[in-house]
Amino acid sequence: MEITIKINGRMVSVEVSDDVAECYDQGRRKAENLSHEKRRHWDDREFDEYIVAAEGLLPYQPTPEDIVCQRETLALLLSILDTCTTIQRERFLLYALYDYTYDEIGLLYGCSKSAVRDSIEAVRKKFQNFFLD
């Protein structure tokens, strides 16, 4: 199948397989649809959120600076958790990340509810002391 493409400002006819021609045509139609949607949006007419979602554009895309800050914060939080005992860290993570109750954690570790609460409060105090100082 023969298609016409633009190379360096010059229109060139190229012989390609049917699969390549179909992909090229789909890409051309997709670009045309997006261009049309952008014009509608810029003219203060409706904007079709479905097309944005279908094209894979996310509402939030972190910048490289955001990613670096997130990684630094995660490393900081993990370093604070490393100062805790293994039991404290495990109980805190079960409570904070997995929504276990004090009773459920107590059953897992074979201890009382107050012992679990004390472990979790000790970790919380370490975080508070670090961030308030």
Rank of each mutant, 00 (worst) to 15 (best):
S79K: 12
N33Y: 01
G106A: 04
N33Q: 04
C23I: 07
D82M: 08
N33W: 00
W42I: 09
F47L: 14
K126Q: 14
V16K: 07
E49N: 10
C84N: 03
T86Q: 03
K125G: 01
Y24P: 02
N8V: 06
W42G: 05
R29P: 09
I67H: 00
K126P: 04
S79P: 07
L34M: 15
E121N: 15
Y50H: 05
R71M: 06
S13A: 12
A122P: 00
E32Q: 13
N8R: 14
E72I: 01
I105D: 03
K125H: 11
S35D: 13
G9E: 02
T101A: 07
T63A: 13
G106M: 03
D103K: 04
Q88E: 13
I51F: 06
K6V: 14
T83E: 13
R28G: 00
I67A: 02
L57I: 15
T73W: 06
R71L: 08
I7A: 06
L93P: 01
M1C: 02
L107Q: 05
T83K: 11
L97Y: 11
Q26T: 06
L58S: 15
E2G: 08
K125D: 11
E15Q: 06
V20E: 09
Q26G: 02
F92D: 01
D44I: 01
T4L: 10
F130R: 12
I87C: 03
E72W: 00
R117D: 12
V52S: 10
Q70F: 15
S119G: 03
L76E: 13
E22P: 01
A115T: 15
E32A: 15
V116A: 02
L108F: 05
Q26W: 13
D118N: 08
I51P: 00
D82S: 13
Q61Y: 11
A31I: 10
Y95E: 00
D99G: 03
G9I: 05
S35V: 14
E2H: 10
Q88P: 00
L93K: 07
C84V: 03
T101V: 11
I7M: 07
R91F: 01
T85I: 12
T73I: 12
E15D: 07
L97Q: 14
E121G: 02
Y102H: 08
I120E: 03
N129G: 13
E2N: 13
N33I: 02
G27T: 09
R71K: 10
R39P: 00
A21W: 04
L74A: 14
D99Y: 09
I51E: 09
Y50N: 11
Y50A: 11
Q26N: 13
D103Q: 08
A54W: 06
M11V: 11
F131G: 12
V12N: 09
N8S: 13
E37D: 10
A53N: 12
L81Y: 05
S17P: 02
F131K: 12
